[in-house]
Design a protein around this nucleic acid. Structure first.
Lengths: 200, 200
DNA sequence: TCTGTAATGAACATAGCGTTCATTATTGGC
DNA sequence: GCCAATAATGAACGCTATGTTCATTACAGA
C-alpha cells in the first residue's frame, strides 16, 4: 500500500519511456515521433508502453507536469516576496530564461514545427496561472465584457507569441530584452482595459 | 488553351469536393474529417480526389485563398481611403463581423476543437498583411530589436487570441465590443514599442 | 524459495493515407 | 452526329501507424 514500495521496475520503465521521448523530440520534433520510435529507443515492448500510458500525448503530458509544479512554485515565491510585482508577470522572465537554457528542447516543443498539443496545453496552464493573479485586479473595475478569464487568455497568447517568435528566429536578442518587449507590448493594454496602473 | 474552355467538369468536381468538406467541417470539425468522408459526401471516387488535390489540407487551403483575396481587397480599400486608419487595423472589425455572420463555420475552423493547420495559416496571412502596413511606421523609430516582423507576428497572435476566445465563449459580446477590446489591448503596446502615437 | 506482479513481443484488428490502372463517361471540335 | 482527347471511376494494393490480446517469461520482495 505504501507507494514507495511499489515495484521500482514501474518507475524505471516510465523513466526510460520519458527519456526516449525527450531524446527523440530533440531529433525529429514532437509531431513526427512515433510510438514505435519510442519503443525502439527505450528497448521496450509495445504492450509495455500501453500498460503505462494511453498514447504519446499521455506520456508527454504526464512528464510535463513539472512545468505545472514550476508554476506553482513560482506562485508561492511571488506570494511571499509580496506584491512587488503585479499579477505574476515576473514569471515571464523566468520562462524566457528557461527557454534560453533549454533552447533546442523548447524549439522542438513550441516552435513552428511543433504541433498543437503542447502549445495548447502550455496555453491552458499559463492562462490558469495568470487568471488567479488577475482576479483581484479585475474585481471592482468597470471593465465591461473584459473578464479576468479573457485577459488571462490574451496574456498567455501574447507571451507564447513572443516566445515562439524568439525561438523560431534563433534567439535574436537576450532573454531580458524579449521580456522587456513582452511587458512593453502587453502591460499597457492590460492597464488600459482594467483602468488601473500596474507597477512595473 | 483558353482556360475558360477547360473542361467544366473539373470545376464542377472541385466545387463538389470543396462543398463536401465545408459541410463536414460544420458537422465534425476540420481535424476529424477524413478524405473518405469527403468522397462519400461528394459521391466521387477516391482517385478523383487525388487527381485534383494532394491531400485534405491542400483542398481546404486552395478554397481558402478567398480570404487572401479579401485581405488584398481590404488593402486596396485602405489605400484609396487614405490614412484615416492606421496600420490596416480597420480590418479587425471586418473580420470580427465576418466571424459573427459565419459563426458555426468559424468556430469549427478556429475554435478550440480545430487543429493547428488553419490557425497557423491564418496567422501567416494576417502577419504578412499587417507587416506591409507596419513597415513604414517602424522605419526610423529607435525600436531596438522590435522589428516590423515581430510586431506583425504579435498583432496577429493578439487578434487570433481574442477571436478564439470570442468564438469559444459563444459570442458573449458584440463584434464592435470585442474589436474595441482588441484595440484597447493591442494598440497601446504597439505605440509604446514604436514610440509613436497611432491615431485614436 | 515462493508468489504476485510487471514485462515481453508476436500476432491481430483497425484505420487512414496515397497510388495504380484498366475501364467508362463526357465534352469540345469538326 | 461522330471522333479524339481528356476526365472520372473505383477496386485493389501497399504502406504506416495505432491500440489490443494473450500466453510466456522475468523479477522483486516477503
Amino acid at each position: 500500500m505504501n507507494p514507495k514500495k511499489e515495484d521500482r521496475r514501474v518507475e524505471r520503465t516510465r523513466m526510460l519511456l520519458h527519456e526516449a521521448l525527450m531524446a527523440l523530440i530533440l531529433e525529429k520534433g514532437y509531431e513526427s515521433v512515433t510510438v514505435q520510435d519510442i519503443l525502439d529507443r527505450a528497448n521496450l515492448g509495445r504492450s509495455t508502453f500501453y500498460c503505462h500510458y494511453r498514447d504519446k500525448d499521455d506520456l508527454f503530458l504526464k512528464g510535463f507536469d513539472h512545468l505545472h509544479s514550476m508554476l506553482e512554485r513560482q506562485h508561492a515565491v511571488a506570494q511571499e516576496s509580496g506584491a512587488d510585482n503585479p499579477a505574476g508577470f515576473n514569471l515571464s522572465l523566468e520562462l524566457f530564461r528557461h527557454a534560453q537554457q533549454n533552447y533546442r528542447l523548447y524549439k522542438a516543443l513550441v516552435g513552428r514545427q511543433s504541433g498543437q498539443m503542447l502549445t495548447s496545453h502550455a496555453h491552458t496552464l499559463l492562462t490558469a496561472f495568470v487568471r488567479t493573479h488577475l482576479t483581484d485586479l479585475c474585481t471592482g473595475s468597470k471593465n465591461g465584457p473584459a473578464s479576468a478569464e479573457l485577459l488571462a487568455h490574451w496574456l498567455a497568447s501574447s507571451f507564447l507569441s513572443l516566445l515562439t517568435w524568439w525561438l523560431d528566429n534563433n534567439l535574436p536578442c537576450s532573454a531580458e530584452e524579449i521580456d522587456t518587449l513582452f511587458r512593453k507590448l502587453s502591460l499597457p493594454g492590460v492597464e488600459s482595459v482594467i483602468g488601473q496602473s500596474l507597477s512595473h
